[in-house]
Nucleic acid binder design. Structure first.
Length: 585
DNA sequence: AGCACGCCGACT
DNA sequence: GTCGGCGTGCTC
């Protein structure tokens, strides 16, 4: 009997090995097998009869029993194909930690047949998490809860008294939790993306927390958003899928709405009004407007903490008179601006424009770089509030300054004031998700203060649809607007994106390499290939290039034949070619 | 990925 | 005459 094994190497095909006499193996079990002379860990994906001549023998099983079901192996293959990465690297990233020698033998995972299940549900509203905890407490069958990070997994494991599958606990207890979930001994298991394939006895409920969070797709295998993996899994095994978010991704909202699967568990009565501070023509010399200064004073006087949210660097050029950004005429995205350069280049289409003298919208003469970074804000705030504790690293400081993520761990009404120093640094990011990210932030700010505090938004765009929708607490109106835009401009969920990037040692080679890549995509029907652009517009050397690809839902299948030889050839002579499907930023 | 093989320059 | 750089190709 021959075993087909896949390894954590960038090689697509499986390798065939002889199973030694007396060794019993199953699909979904890990083994150590000699690969180019050394024993490496691989996953058994198939067992078959065949010609054994010239094949090496498997050295030993690594697991006494399978860790993945056959359905999980197939799901893993789908994930690998969708993300243009190898089956082996995907499966091994989605397997439990390897046991130490002498660990007890545990029962193999349940096999689940394909059944038709309900459409995925999208839960929004302030009560979504309380409702989830309630339902899970009384659940019939098993459940997997996937958080976007270890902290979230830890909080939920405690809240649900559930087994933990993420790396926040020891390997031994993660492994125990894996098999406890597989055998139905732990009804509820909590993990991060590494737990996506854990076997669960039916009927299973799959839960994705903070569905919109880009942290569900960090670098590394499996190179797909947990949302996509879970929705495929739910569809294949007929499980119920619940996705929770205060502000879902536009993709999920759109799908849930058309499947009549949107569930709203809301209570927004008593929430504070969002105070918008219009910063057009001001905010040149201080990051805090009067309303924000007052709100910080009030909160800290009452013994409450304040958080100030800042974006990244000065990223765009803005008109001080009408407030509009200088945008690419082709793509409509704001052009990134950095000091010391006299042209603006679009990140998407590479069109370069002379630095304009006047505002292209209103003809105003005052165009200035826009953006307050954390350092500048901290210095100014310390000066303004010398007696208060101000920190960029301690989220528990009286005034904490940082990126939107500092709002994440705060419980309901944890803060007395949230100030968004410059919403425009989010709205104006050279990324089609700018509106979505801005809306998420505003909503998260309201959730962090609830009825007990104040949200102050400083912006050049008080009339932006994301601000308007947040101010009126009208989720649906935001999504309607955003979906219309996405449909007109051909962005997800209507078309699918991929980003190809290359790196070389010399500028000449880098340019030749990206040109080769672009040529390889010539003539593929339904594919839009955007012109290549240097990766860092600010950098003077052009060793890194990227280009964006747009296509239909089957984009990975379209790209695979063209990209495979490039991914291999790219590795020669210090060249690196990478492709990322469905980039989140 | 990771590792061995092999072909050219610098050193004993 | 030998060491070792890295470019190249393969892994059951």
């Amino acid at each position: 009997v021959i075993a087909d094994i896949v390894f954590d190497v960038p090689v697509w095909r499986a390798f065939a090995y002889v199973i030694p006499r007396g060794m019993e193996l199953h699909r979904g079990q890990r083994v150590a097998a000699p690969l180019r002379g050394r024993a490496r860990i691989g996953m058994v994906v198939d067992l078959r009869y065949g010609d054994e001549t010239g094949l090496q023998a498997i050295a030993r099983p690594v697991d006494a029993v399978p860790v993945l079901s056959r359905a999980a192996l197939e799901l893993g293959r789908w994930v690998a194909e969708e993300s243009l990465s190898s089956w082996g690297s995907t499966l091994l990233a989605l397997s439990p930690p390897v046991a130490r020698r002498g660990a007890p033998v545990i029962a193999p995972p349940a096999e689940i047949g394909p059944i038709a299940g309900p459409p995925p549900e999208l839960w929004v509203g302030t009560l979504r998490e309380a409702r989830l905890a309630e339902q899970l407490r009384a659940i019939d069958g098993s459940a997997l809860v996937v958080a976007s990070d270890r902290e979230g997994a830890g909080r939920w494991a405690e809240r649900l008294d559930a087994a933990r599958l993420d790396s926040g606990v020891s390997d031994a207890s993660r492994r125990d939790a894996w098999f406890a979930a597989a055998r139905g001994r732990a009804r509820i298991a909590v993990g991060t993306r590494s737990a996506l394939l854990v076997p669960l006895p039916p009927p299973a409920t799959l839960v994705l927390l903070d569905e919109h969070d880009p942290a569900h797709k960090p670098p590394g295998a499996p190179r797909l958003h947990s949302r996509e993996v879970l929705s495929r899994r739910a569809a294949l095994e007929g499980s119920r899928l619940l996705m929770l978010s205060a502000t879902p991704s536009v993709e999920s909202w759109w799908r849930a709405q058309s499947a009549q699967a949107l569930r709203r568990h809301e209570r927004t009565e008593g929430w504070p009004d969002i105070v918008t501070a219009d910063t057009r023509g001001i905010l040149r010399n201080h990051p805090l407007t009067l309303p924000l200064t007052r709100a910080i004073e009030d909160a800290t006087r009452r013994g409450r903490r304040a958080a100030l949210i800042v974006g990244r660097r000065a990223a765009t050029l803005v008109c001080s008179e009408c407030g509009s950004f200088v945008r690419c005429k082709e793509c409509g995205v704001p052009l990134p601006f950095s000091r010391g350069r006299n042209s603006l280049a679009c990140r998407l289409c590479t069109r370069a424009e002379q630095l304009p003298e006047r505002c292209p919208t209103c003809g105003g003469r005052r165009l200035s770089p826009f953006g307050w970074d954390a350092e500048r804000v901290e210095a100014a705030v310390r000066k303004r509030f010398p007696k208060l504790g101000v920190s960029r690293s301690d989220a528990d400081a009286q005034i904490a300054i940082g990126p939107p993520s500092i709002l994440k761990p705060s419980g309901p009404a944890a803060l007395g004031c949230v100030g968004i120093v410059a919403l425009d640094s989010l709205l104006g990011m050279p990324d089609f998700r700018g509106g979505e990210r801005g809306f998420e932030l505003l909503w998260a700010a309201m959730e962090a203060v609830r009825a007990e505090g104040r949200v102050v938004v400083q912006t050049l765009h008080p009339d932006h649809y994301a601000v308007e929708a947040a101010r009126t607490r009208d989720l649906a109106s935001f999504y309607e607007h955003e979906i219309k835009l996405r449909s007109e401009l051909g962005y997800p969920p209507f078309r699918r994106l991929a980003v190809l990037s290359v790196r070389s040692r010399t500028e000449g080679e880098a340019h030749a390499l990206i040109a080769d890549c672009a040529r390889a995509f010539d003539g593929i029907p339904g594919l839009t290939v955007y012109p290549a652009a240097p990766r860092d517009a600010a950098s003077t050397t052009r060793l890194r290039w990227r280009l964006m690809l747009k296509g239909p839902a089957e984009l990975p299948r379209l790209l695979a034949p063209a990209i495979s030889p490039l991914l291999e050839r790219g590795r020669r002579a210090g060249n690196v070619v990478e492709i990322e499907m469905d980039p989140v930023s």
